[in-house]
């Protein structure tokens, strides 16, 4: 480097410095990375469900004796109530998020507990339904796919409620939100994801009989 090139730099310096600082800001936006990574993960996770759905469609359209002997079909009424509750809970968790952004912690906790209650009710309703069914996991591909799909989805609902519980308990830690809201944003997104999956599942299993 010679002195000439240095001499030119004053005009050039502020711009490149701003650019550099902005870039570093982006590179160190750990919360943003986490959210991006989480979305990528959910997209990938959705393929598992898509695979199960594809398998279900193949079985449903190709199997000769679809329903096991003695089974006439699935009851739709209770699952429908369950569905409404689960979908509504998506709005409730949205409210929770909004309260948190307004820094209203009690409101946030209230809506979060409400979401957890709705999620738990869904699981309870599903347990009741499973108990009342006269076919099991090993009753042909119908029984297999039914329990596989609802069970795998139920596992996700359970995980969602668990995450909400963690978010609830963490809200009592002082200074928990100093580094941002990634935890609750991700939990909320996961909950919406679980809901959307359920809608498709409900249509495939209960509506298309």
């Amino acid at each position: 480097m010679n002195n000439d090139s240095i001499a030119q730099q004053p005009e050039f310096l502020p711009d490149i410095n701003t650019f550099y600082q902005n870039s570093l800001h982006k590179i160190h936006d750990h919360e943003g990375h986490s959210m991006f990574g989480f979305i990528v993960f959910l997209l990938s996770e959705s393929i598992i469900f898509l695979s199960f759905f594809a398998g279900y469609i193949v079985y449903k359209t190709n199997t000769v004796d679809w329903l096991p002997p003695g089974v006439s079909g699935l009851e739709v009424k209770e699952p429908l109530i369950n569905t409404v509750i689960l979908i509504s809970s998506s709005f409730v968790i949205y409210l929770a998020e909004r309260e948190l952004h307004r820094n209203n912690l009690p409101g946030f906790r209230f809506y979060l507990i409400a979401t957890m209650a709705m999620g738990s009710y869904f699981l309870y309703g599903q347990a009741i339904e499973w108990n009342s069914l006269e076919f099991g996991f090993t009753s042909g591909v119908f029984g297999g796919t039914f329990y596989l799909l609802t069970g795998f989805h139920g596992l996700h609902v359970f995980t969602g409620v668990l995450l909400q519980g963690i978010m609830l308990s963490r809200s009592f830690i002082p200074g928990n939100y100093d580094t941002g809201h990634f935890g609750i944003n991700a939990t909320s997104l996961f909950w919406h994801f679980v809901d959307v999956i359920w809608i498709i599942l409900f249509v495939l299993i209960y509506v298309w009989q």
Partner: peptide, 25 residues
């Protein structure tokens, strides 16, 4: 990996069920 692996996971979950609990996928 992100779009392919989940399909294998789905298949292997079903295979595992067939092998261990006696489903008939």
């Amino acid at each position: 990996q992100l779009f392919g692996l989940p399909a294998l996971t789905a298949g292997s979950v079903m295979l595992m069920c067939d092998l261990t609990v006696g489903t008939t996928f």
